[in-house]
């Protein structure tokens, strides 16, 4: 078995053909494989996001994380890009969908692509994963503690994000949701409302809420890291993608 991978920075075409920086990792083996678009969290396109991309490649997927803040300038550090994007109210939903579509097209254009695409996102990227899965033809989506899928952000936030519940009828694929029981954004009630709505619509979904875990429990470089929840969460992610992104 060849478990070698290639990983590095590439450019892809995003919304309205904008050139985006992106981090790609893919196996060097010859097997047909699914692709995974990784949507980074609000603090930006950071080392932890790239580590997640490499993890998917090590598990046999081609994965790419587009830098959603690329438009803030080339050669600008990711934290400065994130601050600039935040000051503008974050990324517009339409732009996010276009960027994910571009990332998915890039993955499907790679050698050995089997045409299946998964999307996964953390924190604000969890909300954006749901948005992408309701707006594009996706094969499997993983929402890791995305807030404001159901509830509106506070009016005074100045953010462009809005509730996505009305888009739920458009959900194009099975959804795995991984949440912390101690999280407030999204809180258990918000997660429950989303589950009930997806039940009502007959949309395939699988939600897990971990006790003793709050927001950001997958983040190995932050105090919010909860090993038990994260280890089980990764197991569920790879099981889910194994079922839905196989050749």
């Amino acid at each position: 078995m060849n478990d070698a991978i290639w990983a590095g920075t590439i450019n892809i075409a995003g919304h309205e053909d904008a050139e985006l920086e992106a981090y790609l990792a893919r196996p060097l083996g010859e097997e047909a494989r699914g692709g995974v678009v990784v949507i980074h969290h609000m603090p930006g396109y950071d080392e932890a996001s790239k580590e997640i991309v490499r993890k998917f490649a090590a598990h046999g997927y081609a994965a790419v994380c587009p830098n959603l803040y690329s438009r803030e300038g080339a050669g600008v550090s990711p934290d400065d890009q994130a601050a600039a994007a935040r000051a503008k109210g974050g990324v517009a939903d339409e732009q996010l969908v276009g960027d994910v579509a571009g990332a998915a097209a890039h993955l499907n254009g790679l050698e050995h692509a089997n045409g299946k695409i998964g999307v996964i996102g953390f924190c604000s990227g969890g909300r954006q994963t749901f948005l992408a899965a309701c707006s594009l033809q996706i094969d499997a989506a993983v929402d890791c503690y995305g807030a404001f899928v159901v509830n509106e952000p506070p009016a005074e936030s100045g953010m462009k994000a809005t509730s996505l519940l009305s888009k739920a009828p458009g959900l194009s694929c099975p959804l795995l949701g991984l949440f912390g029981a101690d999280d407030s954004f999204p809180g258990p009630e918000e997660v429950g409302v989303l589950a009930a709505e997806l039940d009502k619509l007959g949309k395939e979904h699988e939600f897990h809420s971990y006790p003793d875990a709050g927001h950001g429990f997958f983040a190995v470089d932050r105090p919010s890291y909860r090993p038990a929840a994260a280890v089980d969460g990764w197991k569920k992610i790879f099981d889910f993608y194994g079922r839905h992104l196989g050749a």
Partner: peptide, 29 residues
């Protein structure tokens, strides 16, 4: 108040001193 980029805490009070006219790198965080 949000997740920090560098400080080893779950949340911090973050201040960005900026000049957007000089680009995103004109920032003290």
């Amino acid at each position: 108040v949000d997740h920090p980029f560098h400080a080893c805490h779950e949340h911090t009070l973050n201040i960005d001193f900026t000049n957007p006219g000089e680009g995103p790198s004109a920032r003290v965080a």
